[in-house]
């Protein structure tokens, strides 16, 4: 874990000067996010990994089963939707690709209607899951016939397949991925940190390489790396490295001030954070409120 115990915890607010957060400010900003975007919820995580500088029931934020309707390469990028948030960044800056795109549920449904067959995310059958050569007779997959089965006659069950044929825009099973997203407080960088774990439409976990398809190519293997989640034991998870977060937020605070609009207050931190994270994960449809506008 990066945040080793000897690093002193930030006590006083340095938000306006440097774009960093104290743990208390993280909780404040988290409460504000949960209020405006209730699909985000506070969680405790593994009891053995509770951090004493955060309330036990507010260790990190999570939103689950977030849809990712299409792969990045299928997205239509248009100039009017792109805003460079950080023009001076030698790495090319954070490109806010979703700047003017409305992601209300209606719009999502509309865009799904527009998708033709070729645009659909690929099916599991196209995706080799694992080392098939190691399969032995004792193992099972969903495809095999030797798994237990029960008789099938329930007139009151809505069958996903029927719905899908009739109304592709409102089906129970759409060929899409979903993500679980977590925002933790990074004690070393004193900023929020985003973690992601993806599944295909059959709820099979995505490999690292498959997940890269949903991450902006500017950030794959650069700002997005695999590390241990601070609140879960077990294997590593992909995370957006927080080394530039404070800098970007600071720049946004300055730009907003220069624009003569209302000052950015610390409780809005996570809404701004989630807005610029969209440049890294442009197709993952998590909620970061619609009423907030960054640059008018």
């Amino acid at each position: 874990e990066i945040a080793s115990p000897h690093i002193p915890l930030l006590k006083d607010s340095k938000f306006k000067e440097t774009g960093v957060l104290t743990a208390d400010e993280f909780v404040l900003a988290g409460d504000f996010l949960v209020y405006h975007c209730p699909t985000w919820r506070w969680e405790t995580g593994d009891e053995k990994m509770v951090k004493d500088y955060l309330p036990k029931d507010k260790q990190f934020l999570a939103t689950r089963n977030v849809p990712c309707y299409q792969r990045l390469k299928q997205m239509q990028f248009t100039e009017e939707n792109e805003v460079i948030l950080d023009e001076d960044d030698p790495e090319g800056g954070w490109v806010d690709t979703h700047h003017n795109i409305d992601t209300t549920p209606t719009k999502i449904t509309d865009s799904m209607d527009d998708m033709n067959l070729e645009d659909k995310p690929r099916l599991l059958s196209d995706t080799p899951v694992a080392d098939d050569d190691e399969e032995s007779a004792g193992e099972m997959t969903d495809d095999e016939d030797d798994g237990p089965e029960v008789e099938d006659n329930d007139p009151a069950e809505v069958r996903p397949s029927t719905t899908q044929t009739d109304k592709p825009s409102d089906s129970n099973t759409v060929n899409m991925r979903s993500y679980d997203l977590y925002i933790t407080y990074d004690r070393y960088y004193q900023t929020p940190r985003m973690w992601l774990f993806g599944y295909n439409e059959n709820r099979q976990p995505l490999s690292i390489e498959e997940t890269y398809e949903d991450i902006s190519s500017d950030h794959v293997k650069k700002t997005v790396t695999q590390e241990n989640h601070p609140h879960f034991s077990g294997p590593g998870m992909l995370s957006i490295h927080p080394c530039k977060h404070a800098e970007v937020i600071k720049r946004i605070i300055e730009q907003t001030a220069q624009g003569g609009r209302n000052e950015v207050e610390v409780h809005m931190y996570l809404l701004i954070f989630l807005k610029f994270v969209q440049s890294v994960l442009p197709t993952i449809e998590y909620d970061y409120t619609q009423q907030f506008t960054m640059s008018g």
Binding site: D142, G147, P148, P160
Partner: peptide
């Protein structure tokens, strides 16, 4: 129902994300 729409058991392979050797 499983991923094929049948009333059968399901299966998940997490070796790619949990097996230390694969990681």
């Amino acid at each position: 129902r499983n991923t094929k729409g049948k009333l059968k058991s399901k299966f998940v392979d997490l070796s790619a994300s949990m097996d230390p050797a694969r990681i």
